[in-house]
Design a protein around this nucleic acid. Structure first.
Lengths: 147, 147
DNA sequence: TCCATATAAATGCAAGTGCATCTATATGGG
DNA sequence: CCCATATAGATGCACTTGCATTTATATGGA
């Protein structure tokens, strides 16, 4: 192929294809590992971690939402499921009657740690085992530019 | 934070977070651009491109499936929708009575090109405008290692 | 030939997602 | 104080996805 390409942005498309595939491959590994361990999906982990970090005071849904880049209704329904599973609890906010305060329960903390064990192992095999140590920083720096 | 971390694989987790965010950001830009142009979602593009490449002879679903990394039922239903939209047609295979041959229609080719115009512009602003030209090759090489 | 097993594709059902809208409360200007 | 507007969060509905299973055909060995 020595001819000049007649279609612009071929390079960007190639980057996007690699980005998509890498993402899918890693995500599948993590989700499959969690599923095999009969643990909740990855999305639950992120919320549980966020709530765990917020501590005993809990937090407002809209704060969590902003940090996790989820749509408003998405978080609302995720919390609904997490509450049904007894991993979080919601109660009316005292200062703002429109809102709720969200808390992680003891059971939620426990399951988050169980998930982390699996998650960590999956990351090790999906990332550490594939990428040389010297590759992580450059990769992160390049990915950060896309945001 | 001068203490040694007590949790292993923190580096891999950071890479994964960046990878997820970069992926989400780019994907949202592309999907939003397509939506704004009242065109079908990105997933349709990939199939249409694949079928377009297969040419007049068409192709079998399981072949396309392997290349696109979709679950079997996912492709089956995607093709169902694409057929309903008149962008592809399916007919019984002559050699293998279990299977179907899949073809892209003229309308399918047309819409794929319309999508490409939008897709290309979105890639330009999401990738070319963010990443220096010298960053693409290294990024692709690093991402390729994760597969 | 017959049957056990494998493969291609479709599908019923439950669960998740996107979009638009709704309810309830807050807030600032007149 | 009242109202228009903004904000927090929930929800009805249509569509999509995941999982398991089904249907139809193929294939290799007894």
């Amino acid at each position: 192929m020595t001819q000049k390409r007649d279609t612009a942005n071929y390079g960007a498309a190639e980057v996007w294809v690699q980005l998509s595939r890498a993402h899918m491959v890693v995500q599948n590994k993590i989700e499959n590992a969690l599923k095999a361990a009969k643990l909740p999906p990855l999305a639950w982990y992120d919320i549980l971690l966020e709530l765990d970090r917020l501590g005993a005071g809990g937090g407002r849904a809209y704060e969590v939402q902003a940090r996790l880049l989820l749509p408003q209704y998405g978080l609302s329904r995720l919390l609904e499921r997490l509450e049904k599973a007894r991993y979080v609890s919601r109660k009316k906010s005292a200062e703002d009657g429109r809102g709720k305060l969200i808390f992680i329960t003891a059971e939620g903390k426990k399951v988050r740690l169980e998930m982390w064990e699996i998650y960590r192992a999956a990351l090790r095999s999906a990332i550490d085992d594939k990428l040389p140590e010297t590759g992580k920083k450059p990769l992160m720096a390049l990915l950060a530019q896309l945001q």
